[in-house]
Simulated scan of single mutants.
Amino acid sequence: MPLSEHEQRMLEQMERALYAEDPKFATALEGSGLRTYTRRRVYQAVAGFLVGIALLMAGMVAKQVWLSVVGFLVMLGCAVLAVTGWRKAPRPGEQPAGGPHARHQGRQRRSMMDRIEQRWQRRRDEQQGH
């Protein structure tokens, strides 16, 4: 369920206040969700890789070629997921791709905080003008 306009304004004000009060902390929070997600994805891929090894070994012991092939494919898929997840994970203190300091992206792909700041400035200008 999307937020109402009033709730969105309140959230924007709280985020802006957080940036004004402690910009280092707010910047650190921006990438933490992505970091946690990618770290969890890498851990799941490693666990899947171990399951793949178990399937491969079980197939060899039971002399079931299809089980060994499935185990190998699971290992391969999980290895690809782990490597891609590891490469995409932002380093601690680093801005994720598309963050406010990304220079290679156009105005349409600004970060959420840039858009919020722009809206906040627009509202302040409107209030001062009236």
Rank of each mutant, 00 (worst) to 15 (best):
L3F: 05
E5S: 07
M10C: 08
R16I: 13
L18R: 03
A20G: 11
E21W: 11
E21R: 14
P23M: 05
K24H: 13
F25S: 06
A26N: 02
A26C: 06
A26W: 01
T27Q: 14
A28R: 03
A28T: 04
E30C: 02
S32I: 05
G33F: 03
G33K: 00
G33D: 02
T36R: 09
T36Y: 11
R39D: 12
V42D: 09
V42W: 10
Q44K: 15
Q44G: 07
Q44E: 14
Q44R: 12
A45E: 14
V46H: 11
G48N: 04
V51F: 07
V51M: 09
G52H: 03
I53D: 04
A54C: 11
A54T: 14
L56V: 07
L56N: 06
M57P: 06
M57W: 15
G59N: 02
A62I: 09
V65L: 10
V65W: 15
L67N: 01
V69E: 04
V70G: 03
V70I: 03
G71Y: 00
F72C: 01
F72I: 10
V74L: 09
V74H: 12
V74F: 07
M75Y: 04
M75V: 00
L76M: 07
L76H: 04
L76E: 02
A79S: 14
V80F: 07
L81Q: 15
A82V: 05
V83E: 11
G85K: 01
R87S: 10
P92V: 01
E94H: 13
Q95A: 09
P96V: 04
G98R: 00
G98Q: 00
P100V: 00
A102W: 15
A102H: 11
A102N: 13
R103T: 15
H104D: 10
G106C: 06
Q108G: 09
R109Y: 08
R110T: 06
M112D: 06
R115F: 09
R119D: 00
R119Q: 05
W120L: 01
R123I: 06
R123C: 05
R123T: 10
D125M: 14
Q128W: 15
G129I: 12
